[in-house]
Structures are given as structure tokens and as C-alpha cells.
């Protein structure tokens, strides 16, 4: 390879080449992230995400943010540090939601006929935007972990409430009270998910009264901060360009 030779004929071509690589890289990163993030999320928080009758005010609120802040933290670590690109979290969530929606529509509904209003995914977008903006404005991973991680956990439930509230209306059915979400779970038969598998709030002798969702969100926010730190370092590790020598 001769250093004196140029790979491109002109500056205009260099710009065009660089731009073409942008699209190729974005496509690939986006697709790989959908694959990786989706498999991670579906197997760590998937059941809460699949069904409305799992979307409760305690465990869903706790688990979903904690397990979903992982990939955003890692991708932010790379895209911000190396490119000053503040969309690491958003692109992850765009990917995840796209993967989920395609699946819920074409397979949950299109293959096995569960109504879409029973199996729509959780909304993670508000947290992602906040996480990205906080990183961009603060230019600090520490602040992003603390403030962004906190925001990620806290905003999850209010960000989803307008979507799930209609399914929490009570109904009397054959002499028992259900929410509409419970009734969906009962009506739309799942041979592989008997009711006892459901991990939802069943009540305790706690003293917090009915403020379960805020307490859960707060706890989730706390753990999200810790997970953000951890996954920031994962992101750094995965960003390395090191070669190892074959023996």
C-alpha cells in the first residue's frame, strides 16, 4: 500500500464515501442492536413486556427499567466518547421497540392471534431521550449515570400509564372483580402461561399503603443508576479495537 496514493479522487468523493459508510454503519449497528438488545430484554423482562396482565405497579415497574438500561448505557459509552453522538440510548430503544412491534404484530397477532391490545410492548422512549440529552448537556458519564439513570427509572411508569390505564379499569365478571388486563389474560388462552407463573404484586403487610408504583419506580431508579455504571464499563470494553495474536 502506498501512502502517497489517495483512496479517493476528490474531496467530493471522500465526502460521499464517508456518507455512504455512515448509512452502512448505521444500518448494521441498528440491526445488530435490535438482535442483541431484544434477546437480552425479552429474556430478562420479556414476560412483563409481552402481556398486559403482567404490567403491574410493582414488579414490572421495578424490573423493566433495570434490565433495559443496559444496552443504552453501553452504546452511549461508545458513541459519545468516540464520536460525540448523543443518541446511543435512543437508537437502542428505537431498535428494541421496532423489533418488538414487528414481532407482536406479525407473530403474536399474525401467527397466534393474540390481540395487539393484549401484547403490546412497554414504552421506553421517554427515558431514552432524557438519558441522551442529559449526557449531551452534561458531557459527563457520572452525571448521566446518576441523573439519567434516576430519570430512566422514574419516568418509566408515568411514560406508560397513559397506555395501560384503560386496561386497569375494574369490571365485575361472573361475581369476581377483575381489571380488564386480568380479564384479557383469562380470556385469551395461553397454554404455556398458567396464571401462577405471573409475577405481579400480590400484596404484602407493608406500610406504604397504595403508593406501590412510586416506591417501586424509586427503587428501580436506584438500581438503574448502578446498572448504568456497570454497563458503561461493558460498553467501553466492547468498544476496544485491540488485536490479539494468534498462537
Amino acid at each position: 500500500m502506498s501512502a502517497s496514493q489517495s483512496a479517493v479522487r476528490s474531496r467530493a468523493e471522500a465526502v460521499k464515501v464517508s456518507r455512504t459508510f455512515d448509512y452502512l454503519i448505521l444500518w448494521t449497528v441498528f440491526m445488530v442492536l435490535i438482535g442483541g438488545y431484544h434477546i437480552h430484554y425479552m429474556l430478562t423482562g420479556g414476560d412483563w413486556d409481552f402481556w398486559t396482565d403482567w404490567k403491574d405497579r410493582r414488579l414490572w415497574v421495578t424490573v423493566a427499567p433495570i434490565v433495559s438500561i443496559t444496552f443504552p448505557a453501553a452504546v452511549q459509552a461508545c458513541l459519545w466518547a468516540r464520536y460525540r453522538l448523543p443518541f446511543g440510548a435512543t437508537i437502542c430503544v428505537l431498535g428494541l421497540l421496532l423489533g418488538e412491534w414487528i414481532n407482536r404484530y406479525l407473530n403474536f397477532w399474525g401467527w397466534t392471534y393474540f390481540p395487539v391490545n393484549f401484547c403490546f410492548p412497554s414504552n421506553l422512549m421517554p427515558g431514552a431521550i432524557l438519558l441522551d440529552v442529559i449526557l449531551m448537556l452534561s458531557n459527563s458519564f457520572t452525571l448521566t449515570a446518576v441523573l439519567g439513570g434516576m430519570a430512566w427509572g422514574l419516568v418509566f411508569y408515568p411514560g406508560n400509564w397513559p397506555i395501560i390505564a384503560p386496561f386497569h379499569i375494574p369490571i365485575e365478571y361472573n361475581g369476581m372483580m377483575f381489571t380488564l388486563a386480568d380479564l384479557q389474560g383469562y380470556h385469551y388462552v395461553r397454554t404455556g402461561t398458567p396464571e401462577y407463573i405471573r409475577m405481579v404484586e400480590k400484596g404484602t403487610l407493608r406500610t406504604f399503603g397504595k403508593d406501590v408504583a412510586p416506591v417501586s419506580a424509586f427503587f428501580s431508579a436506584f438500581v438503574s443508576i448502578l446498572i448504568y455504571f456497570l454497563w458503561h464499563f461493558f460498553g467501553n470494553w466492547f468498544s476496544q479495537t485491540r488485536f490479539v495474536q494468534s498462537t
Partner: peptide, 29 residues
């Protein structure tokens, strides 16, 4: 984007609460 996100979340939350004033937790046990 930051302010808009928080604004939409609060607005959506408020609207949902006024539209569905009576909601109950999932029933289990």
C-alpha cells in the same frame, strides 16, 4: 426535547388520570 419529553409525560399522565379516574391494581393471589 428534554422539556418536551417531561411535558408530554406529565400531560399524558394527567390526561389518563382524568379520563380514567377509577383504576385498580391487577388482581392476583
Amino acid at each position: 426535547f428534554f422539556v418536551g419529553t417531561i411535558g408530554i409525560v406529565l400531560l399524558g399522565m394527567g390526561q389518563a388520570n382524568s379520563k380514567y379516574p377509577v383504576t385498580t391494581p391487577l388482581q392476583a393471589g
